[in-house]
Amino acid sequence: MRPFTFERATTPEEAVSAYAAQPHARFLAGGTNLVDLMKLGVETPEHLIDVSKLPLNEIEPTPDGGLRVGANVRNSDLAAHPSVCRGYPALSQALLSGASGQLRNQATTGGNLLQRTRCPYFQDLTAPCNKREPGSGCSAVRGVNRDMAVLGHSEHCVATHPSDMAVALAAYDAEVEVLGPEGVRTVPVAAFHRLPGDTPQRDTVLRPGELISHLTLPPVPAGARAAYRKARDRASYAFALASAAVVVALDGAGTVRHATLAFGGLAHRPWRARTAEEALIGSRAEPQSFARAVDAELEAARPLSDNAFKVPLARSVAVHLLTTLTARADDTPNSAAGI
């Protein structure tokens, strides 16, 4: 690890100013990913600005019935908060399916969104990687690519985004609030992470020196049910091979009137399945129509040499989730029961 200087910011504005004065800086919050990447030599900041003590720890209701979450709220606290468990169960489930108890206690909401890919070539300084060293090439595209992307990837990068939380947030239409040198702006979570294109070194649309301050969750449509489901190589403490978050509501006649679906483990960002959603809305709530909608989305998949299995896996995760969530009309609304 390279030596670095250090300061602790006491207000978000002070943190943003500190970055402007130290361009080779990184913001440090929980550190569960950044410190690891510094040990590996992937991240080599000259200066750390500690933002972990900023007063961004609140989970508050918004006037319209949503929820506003401070960037420093720990993953374990967000997952266990009664308003999240009751109102946004897919978010709780996504958080609880990620990492370990120790890591969730330390990792923050903002940091979870900003975690880097776990592509082994990205973490290996001896291997070419366009994300780590632009122009050096992609080792994964024709290398060991079982865990890599099947949607939205490019010749330059086939990495996936590892967050479970972000997938649920994308399905709930959450927004990211960021503070930068030019003030505050908001970005939908579904548009916060980028596709790699020919600039895979940029994971997100965040501009240099911008700091995530909050997340905002809009109110969930009345009567909607939601859940997160994750397929992985072992029962716990593993990244998703494929995962899905669904928020779905039916009308009295068993027709889908609201549906959002986001996939994890398939792309460089949480994959909002807009094509599937369009097909779902107005269709009968039955497995055949769910399968048709999900298939329409996954037609765009372009698997690599070792990961064709992800397409049917994602299909079955999503169809099962939709089927389970719409199967029992007598459940409580916004239910995660049985998932």
Partner: peptide, 11 residues
């Protein structure tokens, strides 16, 4: 709660 907690209990 945990990942092993049933959805109905979680909620």
């Amino acid at each position: 709660p945990s990942h092993a907690t049933p959805g109905s209990v979680l909620q």
